[in-house]
Design a protein around this nucleic acid. Structure first.
Lengths: 354, 354
DNA sequence: CTGAAAGCGCTTACAG
DNA sequence: CTGAAAGCGCTTACAG
């Protein structure tokens, strides 16, 4: 009928071998002070009967769950899912190499009581040993609450420069460098009239990218005109609608745009296409991420590549270390990864007339 | 220090309210026969103290884990990861709507003792209530073993026509219909010299697609010449190398190819491009899947869309039903979903000369 | 090197 | 409607 019969337990194994459950347990857990002969006999019976110690009983007796929660804060839109979900495979495999299991969650409305409860429950139930947070805003109350409750958290993309943020492991990509690099690249191609498709500045990445755009503009002595500074929330839809609105405003067009991420650039490119504007003939555009789709755009999008996989690997490594030996990792660890420039076909050289 | 202090437990709650642990438990589990007054008092204290019953203790006492294992059999190549991982988000959310958690695994070498042990352990440890299997071959021994051990399994894409396969829920896409449809489409455009990029016939989808290609060819009275029948394992790399080999063989080119999936088509398109062949001017190609990248190809790939998300949703629904009430779902349930044709730019009309 | 016993935190018949 | 007690299956000091 598909119902499972009972599994064999440690008492049965002990009886079979003719030792105590303590001894079985010690063999299973590879403890010292067991004679080779006993160890061998227990091991054999365990293998013969296909015995697997019950996980819940082990956890209840004080063992770790060896499970990590992966919380993807998605804030209602699906824009990043494609990118994020394409990271999951590598993520799961890397965790597995440490012997850890991955429980995945999508967090759509972190401010909702229902969502908060769901997430907190996962931790408080002791379903996981620690969590990985992706896409949360800076100082997301839910995240701060979990940290204050003492849970082990690894966060991707969160930091407010100058602010102390204790008791968390944070791994970031160098957003400021990517953004300023993108702007400088356009400048070096001769562009002086440059527009920005800015991101969500409530998120660390958004704030850092804005800082990068502005710093490079200032460095090169070019002014970003307010009407060329467009706002998005990092989603393709917002990139599209922002650009549509701008294009139908009748304002003069800059010769190039730097976008806060590739997804936003995709949206803008769609808007350009609908208005009959050719890229890069009529307008250049550069993104950030090297989204899997970037090279399939027409034209292929020039961008900064973020090695998300490497970053996530590192985050897992650090969180596992922290879980297994809390003192081995600073209570407030921070690491930054650098992006790599990928030149493709979406930008052209232009006469540098200011 | 990041170490967690102990959580409050049901004894403490009971003491606080002035009732027994049994009563606390009954309130938590929403059992009847509790006075409204008691229920309210317990509920309040539970909320005030942020009490979450320990999961392991509950499972040990006989409750479900409310967790599903998602096992993606990847067979060593990464070809499908992109597609598969793009399904995970929707998958996780849908499971959440049933109150289920998702534990994800990538299974690379199912024949390895190490892998087998890892997978079986997840079930035997009682980490999950049931599993979802994706990408496994027909009669994959590991899967058959799990079924024979009595675990609840939902399988995507597995069936051998005519064979009885008990004790499993199987959900399939209508591969035969997609394949025969693709071939008929080419025929209707006037193509008579048609090549096939076949898939891995050890997998249900591969066998069914081959049957579909062949059936439609027979129906239309066209012959698939052996040299135009190319073999792949569903991966982009194999599509590419198969096509390269064919193109450098000096054999005459058919006017069109039908590919067992989009990924294989992508590989073939790359090979065409490298040989300077234009699509669809020199050769037409049609895929199956509507891979997220299909519309970004140059030219955009004509294909059959598989609604993977809908299929996975249904699979989850069925497996959850089965777990919660084993008699509510046939021990050998089977459902098939139909693909939808998506015409894009990779095929052209041709004079029908046999 | 081995084992008896306590303990982890819940649920569930059962009795009242 | 409520509670005392057994039981789930393990691990871990502790004693020997």
């Amino acid at each position: 009928m598909g119902r499972r019969s009972k599994e064999i337990n440690s008492i049965a194994i002990a009886k079979l071998v003719g030792v105590s459950r303590s001894t079985v347990s010690k063999v299973i857990n590879n403890y010292p002070n067991i004679s080779e002969e006993t160890r061998a006999r227990v091991t054999k019976v365990v293998a013969d009967y296909g015995y697997f110690p019950n996980l819940s009983a082990r956890i209840l007796a004080g063992k770790r769950t060896e499970t990590l929660g992966f919380f993807h804060f998605a804030h209602g839109h699906f824009s990043e899912d494609f990118l994020v979900s394409s990271m999951i495979s590598g993520f799961v495999e890397h965790a597995a190499s440490f012997g850890y299991h991955i429980l995945s969650y999508i967090v759509r409305e972190p401010e909702t009581e229902k969502t908060k409860r769901m997430v907190r429950e996962v931790f408080h139930q002791q379903r996981i040993d620690g969590g990985i947070i992706l896409g949360a805003r800076n100082h997301e109350p839910l995240v701060e609450e979990l940290i204050s409750e003492g849970f082990a958290l690894g966060i991707f993309d969160q930091n407010l420069p100058g602010k102390e943020e204790p008791n968390r492991i944070v791994v970031n990509l160098d957003d400021e460098r990517a953004a300023s690099g993108a702007l400088r690249y356009l400048y070096d191609l001769g562009h002086r009239k440059i527009g920005i498709l800015n991101g969500d500045t409530r998120r660390s990445a958004g704030a850092a990218k804005q800082a990068g755009f502005l710093a490079a503009a200032e460095e090169k002595g070019i002014e970003i005109r307010p009407e060329w500074f467009l706002y998005t929330d990092f989603s393709e839809a917002s990139g599209y609608s922002s650009m549509c609105k701008f294009l139908s405003s009748g304002m003069p067009l800059p010769t190039a745009f730097a976008a806060a991420n590739d997804t936003v650039a995709f949206g803008a490119m769609k808007a350009f296409a609908e208005k009959g504007l050719q890229i890069p003939e009529d307008v250049s555009i550069v993104g950030i991420d090297d989204h899997p789709m970037a090279r399939y755009q027409r034209p292929a999008l020039t961008t900064y590549r973020y090695d998300f996989l490497a970053v996530m690997r590192r985050l897992i490594e650090l969180i596992v270390k922290r879980i297994e030996d809390p003192d081995s990792v600073d209570s407030s660890r921070r690491e930054v990864f650098s992006p790599v420039f990928i030149e493709r076909d979406s930008c052209k050289k232009v006469d540098a007339v200011s």
